[in-house]
Every structure is written in structure tokens, then in C-alpha cells.
Nucleic acid binder design. Structure first.
Lengths: 344, 344
DNA sequence: GCGTGGGTAGAAAGCGGTTTCACATCCTAT
DNA sequence: ATAGGATGTGAAACCGCTTTCTACCCACGC
């Protein structure tokens, strides 16, 4: 149970009214220094903490921000979440996390979960578009909640939802990668992983095509294989790729987990990365530098990323002006998983 | 903001009293089917959700369970958290996560954070003992909150704290490892990683010594090196080990991250794992099977682990009887990181 | 000397639910 | 026929805090 001592007890013992105590607690109105001191002593004595439910009820807000993300075990999300939490708490907000376990059905449940908690804001990571089963009820629900609660969508988009869109600049990230690979001499580049109905995937694929055509490099449709975001997806997509006649000399993976999966499968097939096949990942999770070879990856500034999300949503909650979309830079981090293609 | 429609609006429109609506909402008392139907229709129409703050205020509880853990980016914790959340939500509880970023100072802040939220229960993972700076204030705080709120400590212990202790059976886990290594022919075994003031480390080290002496194998003090729980710790501890004259033929790592770090450092030093050095990790995180060689590790049943924690704390919250400590089995999963020692 | 206004502090009205208590009805058992 | 027990419903108190409204005191100025 919570504390048993209430503001009334404090007031009685300090011989003032509850209003005065409350004023001291909130600083909402000036109080005589002497009175304040007297009350402070009592507050101190009982280590008093105002009951949050009561306070929220009165304030009409929860100072909680809901976070829905697809997979907390993916270091990209956990690292980002940790940063977000740090900044949120520094600003006296709390983060209520819902892990959707990569399931759309659960995502919808998460929405209900956060709505039930009356969060003041909603951060939605990895939003989907064009879902096979768009479930009108789910669409409705999102639209409804985002109309009521400031919402921010990270690397996603949702039709008919009023939200701030924070995205990583795929265009710049992919361009760096393609330029780098092309600079090494690669012309045959594949793109593996992701899901075609997830925004990031579409964006990265499109940016990839754009970057390739800018360099007058051909895009092989068959080298664009999507199968998810996990290590297993990486293994699977490489297996699929290997069944083709013609192979690329370099692969860009939708994220580092997929890249690690590709690495694993390549090893199984005795394909030497980077000698026979160059590989680049995304997100620069802390594992990227553990693999052999260490993974070249496109990195986020996690601290800035998390801070931006949190500051933006809080500003929205407080009714401040915010841009309707924010684009975050990514930075290629070169390690050991790429080489010039074998001349043959 | 939350919903604008209240129970009063519902009552007015359904032409009943608020009490009746409330009774229907909570099912706390029988209501005439006809009345219920009438009210249900209105409830449905507005998609009514009772205000949580008001409800909590009245109920005198939050149906939230606080979770403090040292590092959400460690797959062990994130995987376990995901399982816990799943079960908690299924039982109509919410999990409020605080990530302490491996900092004791933050841990204390987290305690205050969760106390502020008036959580009904507290799950404390990775508890510390014998901390260099035990900070009396911190000790006080923990004791105080655990006296008020059902607390459960996972793989830890805290002096003077009334809590259910859930731990993994290090004894059985380590015994399996030592038996296995010994069976392969290893007699010189080291134990790397962890922190000597963290309970798990102490338990695993002690169990290690016990298992060794059971097999009449000597324990080299200098092969017990602690430096934390991260990949970097793994690299560092192996570096330190390599400076010694005499080396072990097998290493047990405090967890898989440390093992991965050891793997990385070994590669740098051209030490072939498993040919020259066998390696075993703990936790069997999903990355264990990605490395080369795939990591032999002692695994948890995460589903059962998470469920047990959640069910136990809920039972405690509801005033039910619970054991004062629970021991969970671990299971050695053999992959490719161990071999018989080179005969030389 | 008295109206005026700034600085303090108390009383009381919410905030949106739950629950106790009281009161009808109606049904059953004596 | 009637006490007594369910059953169903409403009125009102209560959970703990914030905030408006009001009242008081005292210094100040005309």
C-alpha cells in the first residue's frame, strides 16, 4: 500500500490548513517563510510523498508517457528506451513501456493498455502502414487516441493520425553506405531484411534505389528480400539469396540483427565476409563491434535521438509549438565487414 | 487528456444512479439484468473507460508493479522483462520499469521514482550486497519501502529487507558446467566477470569452488577475475588473464555478454576458441547462438522465470501465502565453444 | 481616519470513481 | 398473515490533493 500519512495529518501537526500545505508542496502560491519552515519540518519528519492518484485526479493528468515498441530485446529499442527514460525522468515524466513482441495484435492491446492508464502522451515506435489486415477497429483506436493524446511516431506513419513524426534520415544514411560501397568498387548491391509493410523498410529500400540510380548502378529486384528484423530473418534471407544464379558483392541489411544473422549464415556456407561479400548493417547496436568481422553500420546518436523524442512530446503535452516532423541524421561507422569486391 | 465522459454522464443518460453504474463496472453487487443492459448500451456508446486516477484513489492501490533492473539493454533482462510484462498484463497488472543503467546512485533514484508512483509491488533485480558505499540513506529507503510494499528480489539479497527471494540455482548450473568441462578433460578452469559485491557473482563463484573441490580440482585464485557484466568486461578480464604465466584451459564467464567479450579478445590475440580455450557463458541470451563458435551456455526457462516472479508478487500483493524464497533450475545448453583441452 | 490593496491563510468545492448505509420490493418460511 | 431474508437501487460519504473564493491583517496614501 501507499503511505498512510496524508496532507491532513501534516496540516494538523503543523497547525495550518491543508491549503497551506498544498501550496508549499506545489509552490502554487506564496507562503510566509516562517510558516513554510514549520510545515517543511513536519513534511521532512514524515518523509511525506503526496498521493499520486489523488494528485493526478485533481490535476487531470498522469505525467506518464506511454511507449509502444515492437521488441525490447532488440538493442536498438532498449538503448533508445534507456535514453528516453533518462530524459523523461529528468523532466518529471514517467515512461510506461509496452512491448508488443512484434505482434500487431499485441500492439493494439498495448494501445488499450496505455489508454487505460490515461497517459498524457504516446510514443509509437515502428509504426506500420499497409498492414495486410489493417483491422479497422485498430485504425479507429489509434486515430481516436491520437486525437485525444499528443502522439509521436518514430520511424513510422499512420494514415489519419495526427502525430509528430520523428524519423531517421534514411536518405542520408543509405547514401553514405552506397557511396562507400561504390567507392570500394561495388556495383552489385543487395538489400536484405525488413518487412514491406513497415515504414522504415520502405524508406530504406526507396532511398537505396534512389542512391543506386544516382550513381547509375542497377538495382536487382531479386536482391531485395524482406523477411523481418531478427537474426533468424538475416539467416533466412541470405539462404534465399544464395539460391539465385547471380549474386551481389555487397549486402546492406535492414538492421544489425539481420546483419548478424547474415554473418552467421555466411559462415555456415563458408562465405568469407568481407572477402567474398561485403556487409553493412543499421543501428550500430553495441553488438556490432563484437562480431567477427566487426560490423560496419549506420549509427544513431542515441542520446540526441532519445532526448529529441522526449522533449518533443513534452512540449506537445504542454501545448507548445513543435514541428510536425523531425529528421535525424545517421552516420556511417566503418569497421571491418566491407572490402573491395574480388576481381574475377 | 483522458476521457471527458464520466460515470455521472453515463448514469444520467441511462437514467440510473452512479452507484448502479459503478456496480456494473466493478461487478461488486448484483444488478437487475434489464438495468444492466440499459447501462451497458450507454457504456458501449461512449466506449467508457473509468478514470484510473479516481479509481486508484478510491481503491487505495495502483495495480502497478515496479521493476528496477540494472541494464535493459542486456538481453537477459529485456527477455525476462518481456515475459514478466506478458504475464502481468494478463493478470491486469502493469509493470513500471526503471532502468538503473548499472548505477547504484540511479538505483536509489529509481526506488524513489517507483515509490512516488505508489506501486503495489516491487521487483528488484540484481540486488547488491556489501556495496563499497552502502549509503545508509539508500539502505533505509529500501528497508522502508519493502516494509510497506511487497517486494521480491531476483538473484540478490539485501540485509534487513523483507522480501521474497527468487534465485536461479547457481549450484546446479555451475555443477553442470564443471562436470561437463571436467568430463571433457579440463582440470584448469577459470571464472571471469561479475562484481564481487553482486550476489550472483558471489554465488556463482562459491558454487564454482564447491563444484571444483567436489571433483578434487584445484581452484586458482588468480583465475577468478571480476570486472563487471558487459562485453567490455569480458575483453578486459581476458586481457588480464593472458598476462599470467599459467593459463587455464577452460573459462566460465559470469554471463553471455562477458563470454562474447572474451571471444572477441581471444580472436584479437589469435587464441582459438574452442581449440585452445573452452568457454561457457550464462543466461543463454539469443545472441549466444550467433557468435562463432556458437556459445555453450547455461540457460534459463525465461517463460517460467518471468511467470514465477509475477505470480509470486501478485500473490503477495493479494495477501496470499508465498514461499520466502524460490529456486529456479538452470540447464546447460551445449553448443560449440568447448572441446577437450589440447594435450601438450 | 478610513478606504485600498498586497500578502497570507482557511473553508469548501471539485476531480471521478467506490462503497457503506438506508430503503423499497418482493419472496419465502413459519 | 407476517416476520425476515434476498434483491435492487439511490443518496451520500469518502479517497487525498488542488484551487478558487473569501477573509483577515496590516501598511499605506489621501
Amino acid at each position: 500500500m501507499g503511505d498512510k500519512v496524508t496532507i491532513y495529518d501534516i496540516a494538523r501537526e503543523a497547525e495550518v490548513s491543508v491549503s497551506t500545505v498544498s501550496r508549499i508542496l506545489t509552490g502554487s502560491a506564496p507562503v510566509n517563510p516562517e510558516t513554510k519552515q514549520k510545515v517543511d519540518a513536519v513534511l521532512q519528519k514524515y518523509n511525506f510523498r503526496p498521493n499520486r492518484a489523488a494528485r493526478n485526479l485533481s490535476y487531470q493528468r498522469s505525467t506518464m508517457i506511454g511507449v509502444i515498441l515492437p521488441d525490447i530485446t532488440n538493442p536498438f529499442f532498449s538503448t533508445l528506451f534507456a535514453e528516453m527514460q533518462r530524459h523523461a525522468i529528468a523532466k518529471d515524466y514517467s515512461l510506461l513501456l509496452f512491448n508488443a513482441m512484434n505482434s500487431l495484435a499485441l500492439e493494439s492491446e498495448g494501445l488499450a493498455y496505455l489508454a487505460r492508464h490515461q497517459v498524457d502522451g504516446l510514443i509509437f515506435m515502428g509504426g506500420r502502414v499497409n498492414e495486410v489486415e489493417p483491422s479497422p477497429a485498430y485504425q479507429m483506436e489509434i486515430a481516436e487516441i491520437s486525437a485525444r493524446v499528443p502522439t509521436i511516431i518514430v520511424n513510422g506513419e499512420m494514415p489519419g493520425v495526427d502525430a509528430v513524426i520523428v524519423s531517421t534520415s534514411e536518405q542520408s544514411g543509405i547514401a553514405q553506405v552506397v557511396d562507400y560501397l561504390s567507392g570500394l568498387g561495388h556495383t552489385r548491391i543487395g538489400f536484405l531484411g525488413g518487412s514491406s509493410h513497415i515504414t522504415v523498410t520502405r524508406n530504406r529500400q526507396q532511398s537505396f534505389c534512389a542512391a543506386m540510380s544516382r550513381l547509375a548502378l542497377p538495382v536487382e529486384e531479386q536482391w531485395l528480400i524482406t523477411d523481418g528484423f531478427s537474426i533468424e530473418s538475416g539467416e533466412k534471407t541470405l539462404e534465399m539469396l544464395l539460391r539465385l544464379e547471380k549474386l551481389p558483392t555487397a549486402i546492406i541489411a535492414i538492421n544489425d540483427l539481420v546483419a548478424l544473422g547474415i554473418l552467421k549464415a555466411a559462415r555456415r556456407h563458408h562465405i568469407d565476409i568481407p572477402r567474398q561479400l561485403s556487409l553493412v548493417g543499421f543501428d550500430d547496436i553495441y553488438l556490432a563491434s563484437v562480431s567477427t568481422p566487426e560490423l560496419t553500420s549506420v549509427s544513431h546518436n542515441y542520446e540526441y535521438f532519445g532526448r529529441t523524442i522526449v522533449e518533443t512530446i513534452i512540449s506537445r503535452i504542454k501545448g507548445g509549438d513543435t514541428p510536425s516532423s523531425i529528421l535525424l541524421d545517421m552516420q556511417l561507422v566503418i569497421r571491418d565487414s566491407c572490402q573491395p569486391p574480388e576481381s574475377r
